[in-house]
Simulated assay, not measured.
Amino acid sequence: MSKDRIGFIGAGLMGHGMAKNLVEKGFQLTVLAHRNRAPIDDLIRRGAGEAATPREIAGKSDVVFLCVTSSTQVEEIILGRDGLMAGGREGLIICDCSTADPSSTLRLGDRLQEQGIALADAPLGGTPAGAEAGQLSAMVGADPAVFARLKPAIEAWATKIVHIGPLGSGHKMKLLNNFLSLGYGALYAEALTLGEKVGLSPKDFDRVIRGSRMDCGFYQTFMGWVIDENPNAHQFTLANAYKDMRYVAAMGDDSGMANPLANAVKSSYALAVSSGEGERYVPMLTDVIGQLAGVAKSDK
């Protein structure tokens, strides 16, 4: 059976590795032009084609993956004047790998269904290094028949694939996943700062936590900045973290549930963004909380 033609929009930190694995594993790939030429030119050297607009990509693809920042971008890519919907046809599948607002995803699904286009959500678990290695995880929301079509392409870049349920399920699960991980980030930042206020250094903290039941992969990459000052140990911006926690809060509001912990976590990232630190990475929240508490980085 011939492989679906793949379109890819969003070849950034995560998307480049995903797209690279697709083209290297034999899929005919078309990527969207972008002002950041380095990842696009690399994919073209590997055999990908390039399109100028989402509309053009839709015409050249059977499946289009999106890996962008927010629901606002997803809506523009799909519904815009030169968007995927304008160039799509019956049978096209759009798979949104972003961390998005589930209510937006469901509305888009209804719009696209009117034109015979299927929407699925497959947000990601993992790191840019995992994306390059083809070892991400995917939590998929899709109709069973759509999932069956998508699975071979997702297998090109993911080693763990969980079909959660219908459209929107993946985005809901991803928000819960990020609530946990970003909650860890807020806890670590506050605990490390409190430790310093009472005379315990980050290295003291790490000697106890590392290797204990409280250790995990997220902790290790987070501490890659705190201990080793590796700026790329955990590449996820504070602005994206704040956006994701706003989506978590909105999901809680839509469900009618009070979620005080999620709102407290959201406030930690709001502090970072309002301080002008939004483009720094999540472990650097420790610096923001430390500065507010009067703990200078030079003291660490």
Rank of each mutant, 00 (worst) to 15 (best):
K3V: 03
D4Y: 09
R5H: 07
G7N: 02
F8Y: 12
L13W: 06
L13I: 12
G17N: 04
M18G: 04
A19P: 02
A33K: 14
R35K: 13
D41S: 07
D41R: 04
D41Q: 11
A48M: 00
E56K: 07
I57R: 01
S61A: 13
D62V: 01
V63N: 04
V68S: 00
I77A: 01
I78S: 06
C95D: 07
T99H: 02
A100T: 09
G109W: 04
R111Q: 13
P123N: 00
A129N: 07
G134D: 03
Q135D: 11
A138P: 03
A142F: 03
A145Y: 09
A148D: 15
K151N: 06
E155T: 05
I164A: 08
K174D: 03
L182I: 01
L182G: 00
Y188H: 13
E190Q: 08
V198R: 05
V198N: 06
D204I: 05
I209D: 02
G211H: 06
S212V: 10
M214T: 14
Y219H: 14
G224I: 09
V226I: 07
D228Q: 12
A233L: 08
H234I: 00
D253Q: 15
D253E: 15
D253L: 14
D254N: 14
S255C: 08
G256E: 04
A258F: 11
N259K: 12
N263I: 05
N263K: 15
K266C: 02
S267F: 10
S267H: 14
S268Q: 12
V273F: 01
S275L: 02
E277K: 15
E277I: 01
P283T: 10
L285A: 03
I289D: 01
A293L: 04
G294P: 00
G294D: 05
V295C: 08
V295M: 06
K300C: 04
